[in-house]
Design a protein around this nucleic acid. Structure first.
Lengths: 154, 154
DNA sequence: CTCACATAGTTGTATATACAACATAGAACA
DNA sequence: TGTTCTATGTTGTATATACAACTATGTGAG
């Protein structure tokens, strides 16, 4: 490879390394979800499942498609997550009136889990704030809110 | 379930929904990596692989363990990513002198890919900035940098 | 009414990721 | 010199996630 191309390689690598938003959001994702998943593990649920549980609790009865749009998650991702949560006995999946939409509701076991989870979630949230700093946590929260608004959620 | 507990459920769901950092970082992750992966797909690499390629380009020869520490990724994640990238012919995996560390280097094919990737990456970065807004993108970048610093990277 | 089209969910396949368990190879120390 | 401790990688297993292809169901145009 010519010196010219060699320089191009180094420049590309440095530019991407110094700026890439994808690398940074993945780092944050690994760091933060690691904190939450570790905290939630004794309860048997993951932070992704908690997020879905909360949406269903706040809006149920609600269809998987609506949850998918609300969270900007692919419908197949929701489908499989719902299946796990159903298997764990936290949700009830009922046929909707239309015959193709389903109706999800959090059942008694799921509600009890949610209440039991709150203090654990709170602890994880505190740890995450410690890692991000208060202003970092604020930034992340408002960034998330902004993207949500922009997605034209339901 | 008593009214008291019913209230506790609603409060937990609302508190978590309104504040959870994990839900927000996962939303950002899905949104941003979606943009990059879509842009990179024609080139046959993912944004995770690009991140690793860049680290190896900037620091190679380097061991998988060092990459793992640098990116705060689990060693098994690195191991399997390296295997895919090796299979694609972008990296060379050589035995290190010590006999247990490996030495990774980006080879000619990987370098050519990196150069070809730069404009594509740039486009994705621009799209991501459009979604986040300039100030949001700045926040995310500095948040990532801050977490990196805090991790006591090599 | 029928056919084309859109919507809802599921399933196949692949990557990213982590944790746990393991094998191996240096290193420290008795 | 062994023996124990630690560091490096790999592999099994599981979840999160997405895209593509598929089924089934509603909807609307003719």
């Amino acid at each position: 490879m010519s010196p010219k191309n060699s320089t191009a390689v180094a420049e590309a690598a440095q530019t991407i390394s110094a700026n890439c938003l994808a690398a940074r959001v993945r780092l944050l994702h690994r760091t933060i979800t690691g904190i939450f998943d570790e905290a939630l593990r004794p309860l048997g649920l993951t932070d992704a499942q908690l997020t879905i549980l909360v949406v269903v609790a706040n809006r149920g009865p609600v269809s998987p498609g609506a949850v998918s749009r609300r969270l900007n998650m692919e419908k197949s991702t929701i489908s499989r997550n719902i299946a796990r949560m159903d298997k764990n006995g936290w949700l009830t999946v009922a046929d909707g009136e239309s015959g193709r939409e389903q109706r999800l509701t959090v059942n008694a076991k799921g509600k009890a889990l949610l209440v039991k989870t709150l203090p654990v979630w709170n602890e994880a949230q505190t740890k995450a704030k410690a890692v991000l700093g208060q202003s970092g946590a604020d930034s992340l929260r408002s960034l998330g809110n902004a993207v949500w608004s922009q997605l034209g959620r339901e």
